[in-house]
């Protein structure tokens, strides 16, 4: 297994704004690599640097072991691109669009015909072959965008938020499709600000914030990096400040929030956290309603590292 992409000390400035700040990443062959970050964190900028669409100020980007340049056409042949903004011709039908983009890579007509057909079926666009993009729903349009990017069966697929503004059903279809492409041997880079989907399909994840990679690893590794091991939510009315103080003294509990009758308790690892807490409520004879416990999410990882909510800044 070789390294497909190697980004080292990448710096990209837009005038005053530092969009990428000494970014360092490696993507290995055969993985689905997730770039997770809120809006404006530099995901698209990073992708554009990998594709040599942008000149950068410092650092290096190697793709398939070679420094990428605007004229690295041999490398570009092996890359499939799904850009954040849908890029299709309004004047061409679904089928013609796929054929056009596939034709930018595949000269052989017979082979191309077969590839176009496969991509059409793969994206579930069989019933829309003769449709013009204007007539497609948002989800179908995204699928067409993907079909155009992957029809030529590239070794490396770069996708920039391919599921933005897509309903959950279409999104799941797309995610399954990406996993299928990966099973067939493609390496995938996938950017998103939806942590759930990144968690669902990516083998390794880099979390970006303000152009820097703030955390890097598998989803498990990332969650292991933070203090929170478990989050317990409890519905209770009329808790007093000294109650909260006492709860905070319990074993493993390190943070307590009480808002609008909802208590959120963060525990660092350990077992039986819920039992200890319920014991306390019993001893104090405080009544409570709903209780549930959660494992940490990537949002918690982001929150702890940057002090911001990934979700709030993203949505």
């Amino acid at each position: 297994m070789g390294t497909v992409i190697e980004i080292d000390n990448l710096v990209k400035r837009y005038k005053e704004l530092i969009a990428l700040d000494h970014l360092k990443l490696t993507v290995e062959e055969g993985e689905i690599f997730g770039l997770l970050g809120p809006n404006g964190s530099g995901k698209t900028t990073a992708i554009n640097c990998i594709l040599a669409l942008l000149y950068f100020d410092k650092g290096s980007v190697k793709v398939f072991g070679e420094e990428i340049q605007p004229n690295s056409y041999e490398i570009k042949k092996k890359i499939g691109v799904v850009l954040q903004n849908v890029a299709v011709f309004e004047e061409l039908t679904v089928q013609e669009n796929i054929d056009y983009f596939c034709g930018l890579y595949i000269g052989d007509k017979k082979l191309r015909k077969q590839y176009v057909e496969e991509a059409t079926v793969f994206s579930g666009l069989e019933d829309f072959r003769k449709f013009y993009p204007k007539k497609l729903s948002g989800g179908l349009l995204r699928r067409l965008n993907i079909a155009c990017g992957i029809a030529h069966k590239p070794k490396l697929i770069i996708m920039d938020e391919p599921t933005v503004a897509v309903d959950p059903q279409s999104r799941n279809r797309i995610l399954e499709g990406i996993q299928e492409l990966n099973r067939k041997g493609a390496t995938v880079i996938y950017t998103s600000h939806y942590m759930e989907e990144v968690e669902q399909i990516c083998s390794r994840i880099a979390i970006l914030d303000k152009g820097r990679c703030v955390a890097f690893g598998t989803s498990e590794e990332l969650k292991g990096m933070i203090k929170t091991g478990e989050k317990i939510h409890l519905e209770a009315a009329g808790l007093l400040p000294f109650h909260l103080e006492e709860i905070k003294e319990l074993r493993h509990v390190y943070k307590v929030d009480y808002r609008e009758g909802m208590l959120e308790i963060r525990c660092s690892g350990g077992k039986h956290n819920l039992v200890h807490i319920l014991d306390y409520f019993g001893k104090r004879e405080i009544g409570f309603g709903r209780v549930y416990s959660e494992l940490p999410t990537l949002n918690d990882v982001f929150l702890e590292i940057t002090g911001k909510e990934l979700r709030d800044s993203a949505e």
Partner: peptide, 19 residues
């Protein structure tokens, strides 16, 4: 105008056909 569309021209530049 179509070919100069920002997104389409970026997409075309990603391809293996020399600019």
């Amino acid at each position: 105008k179509t070919f100069q569309n920002k997104d389409l021209s970026a997409r075309n530049k990603c391809s293996a056909v020399p600019y």
